[in-house]
Each structure stands twice: as structure tokens, then as C-alpha cells.
Design a protein around this nucleic acid. Structure first.
Length: 671
DNA sequence: TTAGGGTTAGCA
DNA sequence: TGCTAACCCTAA
């Protein structure tokens, strides 16, 4: 009985642990019984890690195992690689499921020393790096201190079963790609496709060993082939050729005498270990010497010519294992096809058929579970389109990684398409006035149509768009002209310096809740009129106004950065006086306008209404009327002043209008 | 990387 | 069963 050497142990472990059909219990028994080699084979290293991962697929320890696995040399894998997917799935689950998300996510994903970040970043493991992994790392880092993102990430990565599934997929891919063991390589050399060459180069002593391993029948088969090939392949027999051949044979014989073939000893040792550790019911000593008792290495129980079990003989590593999955083995072809495969003793070829963890079609057709878009995502997408323009989905996505978690640029594009479906897009500033004017005309048209349906009523309504330099250009064509020009009324030459209006530019600042703020302004909560007014437009947007720049002649709605900053500084303290929560909101942008302010009277600041005939001068039968000085309160006054002025125009009687609105005529305009 | 048509799943 | 939102596929 040869003594078990460290090399023997290496061979056994390399072979048995690298075979996924060897149960975990048997693998553990082998590891416990045999000394673990100081320099294990790559196959053995990989096998140990895979078995460790299989036993503990989703944990901090599994993350370590994955890092070690990634450090092993590997063949190119599909993208995304199973190990990258498994790694980020485990890391994501660990952070998402941690009681303290911030601490866990920071430890794993934060710059510069997060364990997972270092693994997937540049300079880390190429096997673990993928676009998805990098994006996920960024999302988790951004989610530290961001409760909204954490909720989303928990939803995406907090499923332990999903993480384990990624690890199982990795394990399946790794086992399928596991190469042959050293023993299998040796067996292939002795009884496989290259056996003829091996036997040809072997001396008689070595062939005798081969004969024991291969069995008599296989030996005869190989020797017949060897003889045929020698006579066929070597038709030219010259003294020089014979000399070279002899030299090669001598060389091979010397090599074999120095390097002992590992197969017999390894096989014997494996038999012994398995027999003692796994199948204690078998009495090894009953049959005498172990190497001889093993009989031929090749024939399995099933392949025995007599179909009977090898009674009394210890089970061999090469014997059929009832739990083994033989579909992974590709049977050696039978070139002659003369003998039924079942009756022909042979060692299986160590070549493996690649086994995909999942059928290709299943991977291809895997559809993400639909995830509804939240309000914040929609709002951020809206803002993104405003900022970057429709079509720049990648920019919008990459600039909002903490909001668009798990979304792709195509998702953004599709979502925007849905949001725009059946919705008229908000007009640009330039077009807004036109659209509003047309809307106003349509409303008037509808009124005229309704009036025309009444008996004895015929109304006609027409819209003309025409530039006029002065009021007299209109005088000949109309009975009445009502001037509603706001602050620009004073630009008419007939009214210049005659109206007691003061211009006042006001800046309105828009604020939004940061994307990471979960608490929103209540839907039922009111807008606020205070020292500054706050008009809430939805739960996350508010306009705050307004500043007071008296006598301004800047009619532009555009606000410079400096003006915006000044306005913000002016408005925020006023707003926080009534709504302290405004400090949590972000300034977004500002816009401005000119309001026409009426004089302050004992009745307050009231709009300026009335007939302008005296001011304009009576050159025709046309009467001119003014509606102005509404300040910032047009919404409040427009109904009343419109009705009063219409009545007065129809009656041609200014007295229809209360004197509080017409008393301004006695006030001298300020210069 | 994007646009646009097609497919699928969930819901009323 | 039809509609819609989310997702997928493919050409440019």
C-alpha cells in the first residue's frame, strides 16, 4: 500500500472537489481527511470557493468569496458576466437589507474605500466591473443620507431570493466551465483519443502500468491501433528515422522513470479515503492489496461486461456514482460503431459539454418587472427635458442618478412619450401670448355665437392683429376702444405722462423641494399671502413673490443671475416668517414682469377706469376707455372692471362706473 | 444613443 | 376585453 503523499492529496482534492456531482458532505469529509496542499491547483482553488459560495450564497462572507473568485484567472465571460451580476446583487442586498442603511451603504459603496466600489472601480477587478455594477455603486453612494433613494433601492435590491438567484446562476456557469481534473487529463492520455501516442512513447514497464489501469480489453484495443498506426504512419523506414524514433522512445522512458505517473497512486489513495470515510461498511482488507483490488480503472459498474457489481471491491472514484449527473459528459465517439457502447469498457472522455446556467432563450426573453414611475421621477424628467431638451435622455439620466434608479435612457424616452400622449405641450414664452390671445378670442367668439342664437340678436366677432402707433389710427373704424395695456398704456403718445401710474418691476422666484426630501407640501395646504406671497403649484413647487423695483423701465421677463440672487435674498426671509419650512426648498429660477401701480387713495390702490375722451381729444365719434392700474391684482379685479367698462361703453355713460374707480382723473400724474 | 413600432402585464 | 403604462426590439 503506497503511502499517501501531498501530491496524491492534491490530485484527489482536485478531482473530487471540482466535480459538482460530489456531494458537499463527501467534499467536507475529503477536506477533513486530507492535508490541504500548500499550492493548490487553480481548479481546486475555484472548486473550494464555489462550494463555499454554494453553502453561503448571500452574506458578507459571500462577498469575500466572490472577491476571491474574481481574482482567479478566468476565461472571457458573456456581458454582463455572471460574477459581476452576482457580486452587485449580493452587495446591493447587504446594503438594502441592513438596519442602518447609511452605514452599510457607506462601507460598501462610498468613495474611496467602499469595499464594493474598490472592486468595481478602475483598478479593481475586471471580472466584477460592469456598467450596471458601476451605476449601482453610484446609486447606493448617492443614497447615503437620502431617504427617498433608500426606499427605492430597498425595493430594487432588498430581495434576498433575487440575490441568491444571481449567485446560483454564477455557480451554474462556473461549474459548467470547470476544466478537467488532473486525473481526468491523465486518464485521457492513457485511454482517450491520444492513447495511441502515449502508449507508443511508453517503455514496457510503463505500458504494464497502463495495462492495469486500462483493463485488458482496452489495452488490446489500443495495442491494435498502435500496431496499425505504426505500419501506416511510418512507411518510410530509413536508418535515420529509426534512430530518431529510438532516441525519442529512450527519452520518454527516461522521463517516465523519473516522473512517476500519478494516476495509479492517486486512484488507490482516493479509493482508500472514500472507502474509509464514506462507505465504512466495506472491508478494505478483505481483498488484499488495494491497487490490484481496484481492478481496472475504467469500467464502471454499469459498463461491466457481466453487468454485476464489483462485489467485495471498494468503490472507486471512477465508479458510477448514483447521484452523479452524467449529462455533463460527452461520450467518446465510437468510430467503428461495431460494438454497443454499453458493452465496451472505456473511460469517459473528460471533455465537457458547456452547460448554460439558463437556456439562452430564457435569458433573452427575460423581461423586467414593470415598475410604476413615482411623482418625483416624473417631475425630475420634466425638469430634465426643460434643462437638457427632449431627446437627451442619457444626459437627463446621468445627471439624476439618485432619482432614476434602475431606469435606462430608453425608459426615460418611453416615459416622456407617455407623459406627452394626449397632452398639449406648454407653449414657449414667445408663443404663450399668441395662444392666450387666441384663447381669449375663442371665448369671445363663443359668447357671440350664444348671443346670436337668441331672437333678434346678431353678433359678429372678429380678431384683428394690427400694430398701431397712436389711438387715432383706430378712431375712424370703431365706436368704442377699450385700452387694456397694463404698464404699457403710457407708451401711447396720447396717454404719455397723463396717467397716474407708476411702473414697478417685480421678480418672482420659483423653489422646489430637493429630490431627496420625502416630505411634501400638503395637497390641502393653502397658498399664503403675506409680506411675500407663496403660490404652491403642486406639492413640490412654489412661486414666491414679489420684489418691488419702482419706476423700473426694464420690461424683460428674463432675470440675470445677480438680480435673481438679490430677489432670493429679499424674498426668503419674508417667506420663512410664515413658512419656516421654505429653508428646505431649493431655488430653481426667477422670472420678472412690470406691473402698473395706481396711486394710493383713501380707498386703497384701486384700478383706473373711465372715459379718456378729454385726455385723447375728441376728433371723431369714437370713445376711448381705459382699464389699467390693476397692479398685481388683475385676477382679483378683472371680472368687475370688465363688466363695468363694458356697460359704460355700451351706454356711452361713464357714470355707470363707481366714482372710486374714476376719481384718479383728479390726480396729477407724478413725473 | 435615440426614435419609433411592437409586446406584455396589470387593471377596470 | 380593451386600454394604458412599462418595457422590448431594431434600424439608423
Amino acid at each position: 500500500m503506497p503511502r499517501l503523499t501531498p501530491a496524491d492529496a492534491t490530485l484527489i482534492l482536485d478531482h473530487a472537489l471540482g466535480d459538482p456531482s460530489v456531494p458537499a458532505a463527501a467534499a467536507h469529509a475529503l477536506l477533513a481527511a486530507l492535508p490541504f496542499p500548500s499550492d493548490p491547483t487553480p481548479r481546486l482553488r475555484r472548486a473550494v470557493l464555489l462550494r463555499r459560495l454554494a453553502a453561503d450564497p448571500v452574506s458578507a462572507s459571500a462577498l469575500d468569496t466572490l472577491h476571491l473568485l474574481a481574482s482567479l484567472p478566468a476565461s472571457p465571460s458573456p456581458s454582463p458576466s455572471p460574477i459581476a451580476a452576482a457580486h452587485i446583487a449580493v452587495a446591493g442586498f447587504l446594503a438594502a437589507s441592513a438596519p442602518d442603511f447609511d452605514a452599510a451603504a457607506a462601507a460598501l459603496f462610498a468613495r474611496p474605500d467602499g469595499r464594493v466600489r474598490r472592486a468595481v472601480d478602475e483598478g479593481g477587478s475586471r471580472a466584477l466591473a460592469s456598467d450596471d455594477a458601476v451605476a449601482t455603486v453610484e446609486q447606493f453612494e448617492a443614497a447615503v443620507g437620502n431617504s427617498f433613494s433608500q426606499v427605492v433601492l430597498r425595493g430594487l435590491w432588498g430581495d434576498r431570493d433575487a440575490a441568491e438567484e444571481r449567485v446560483r446562476e454564477l455557480l451554474a456557469a462556473e461549474w459548467a466551465g470547470m476544466g478537467p481534473s488532473l486525473l481526468e487529463v491523465a486518464a485521457e492520455r492513457i485511454v482517450g483519443d491520444v492513447a495511441v501516442g502515449t502508449w507508443r512513447d511508453a517503455d514496457e514497464a510503463t505500458r504494464a502500468k497502463f495495462r492495469v489501469l486500462a483493463g485488458e480489453e482496452k489495452t488490446r484495443e489500443i495495442l491494435v491501433k498502435l500496431e496499425e498506426s505504426t505500419s501506416r504512419v511510418n512507411p518510410i523506414s530509413t536508418p535515420e528515422v529509426s534512430k530518431v524514433v529510438d532516441a525519442l522512445k529512450t527519452s520518454c522512458a527516461e522521463l517516465h522513470s523519473v516522473v512517476e505517473d500519478p494516476l495509479p497512486a492517486a486512484k488507490a489513495a482516493a479509493d482508500k479515503v472514500l472507502a474509509t470515510r464514506i462507505n465504512r461498511t466495506v472491508n478494505l482488507n478483505a481483498e488484499g492489496g488495494q491497487p490490484a483490488a481496484c481492478g481496472t480503472a475504467g469500467p464502471s459498474v454499469l459498463n461491466e461486461r457481466n453487468n454485476g457489481p464489483n462485489k467485495g471491491a471498494p468503490p472507486s472514484l471512477m465508479d458510477w456514482n448514483p447521484t452523479a449527473r452524467t449529462f455533463q459528459w460527452e461520450e467518446s465517439p465510437d468510430p467503428e460503431g461495431s460494438e454497443p457502447a454499453l458493452r465496451r469498457p472505456h473511460l469517459p472522455s473528460p471533455r465537457r459539454i458547456p452547460v448554460s446556467p439558463l437556456p439562452a432563450a430564457e435569458n433573452k426573453n427575460k423581461r423586467r418587472r414593470a415598475r410604476k414611475w413615482c411623482l418625483l421621477e416624473e417631475e425630475t424628467l420634466r425638469k430634465g427635458v426643460e434643462l437638457y431638451g427632449s431627446g437627451n435622455w442619457k444626459d437627463i439620466l446621468s445627471n439624476n442618478p439618485d432619482v432614476f434608479i434602475g431606469r435606462t435612457p430608453v425608459d426615460l424616452k418611453d416615459k416622456w412619450r407617455n407623459m406627452m400622449r394626449g397632452i398639449v405641450r406648454p407653449p414657449t414664452t414667445e408663443k404663450a401670448a399668441d395662444i392666450l390671445l387666441e384663447a381669449l378670442f375663442s371665448a369671445c367668439q363663443n359668447l357671440a355665437d350664444e348671443a346670436s342664437s337668441l331672437p333678434n340678436e346678431q353678433k359678429e366677432f372678429k380678431l384683428y392683429r394690427q400694430h398701431v402707433d397712436n389711438l387715432h389710427q383706430l378712431a375712424g373704424d370703431y365706436d368704442s376702444v377699450i385700452i387694456c395695456l397694463g404698464a404699457k398704456a403710457c407708451s401711447l403718445p396720447e396717454l404719455a405722462n397723463k396717467l397716474p401710474l407708476r411702473t414697478c418691476r417685480g421678480v418672482i422666484a420659483e423653489f422646489q423641494l430637493p429630490s431627496d426630501t420625502v416630505e411634501e407640501y400638503g395637497n390641502q395646504s393653502p397658498s399664503i399671502l403675506s409680506d411675500a406671497w407663496m403660490a404652491f403649484q403642486g406639492p413640490r413647487t412654489v412661486s414666491i413673490g414679489s420684489t418691488w423695483q419702482w419706476k423700473s423701465e426694464n420690461y424683460s421677463s428674463t432675470v440675470s443671475d445677480e438680480e435673481a440672487l438679490t430677489a432670493k435674498d429679499e424674498l426668503l426671509p419674508k417667506a420663512s416668517g410664515v413658512y419656516p419650512g421654505i429653508s428646505k426648498w431649493d431655488f430653481v429660477h426667477a422670472r420678472a414682469g412690470i406691473r402698473a401701480m395706481p396711486p394710493l387713495t383713501t380707498n386703497g390702490s384701486l384700478p383706473l377706469l373711465g372715459c379718456l375722451d378729454e385726455m385723447v381729444g375728441k376728433k371723431s365719434n369714437c370713445k376711448f376707455w381705459l382699464v389699467g392700474g390693476l397692479g398685481a391684482r388683475g385676477l382679483l379685479y378683472h371680472g368687475l372692471v370688465g363688466k363695468l367698462t363694458a356697460k359704460a361703453a355700451i351706454c356711452c355713460d361713464e357714470n355707470v362706473i363707481p366714482s372710486e374707480f374714476t376719481c384718479w382723473k383728479g390726480i396729477k400724474p407724478s413725473q
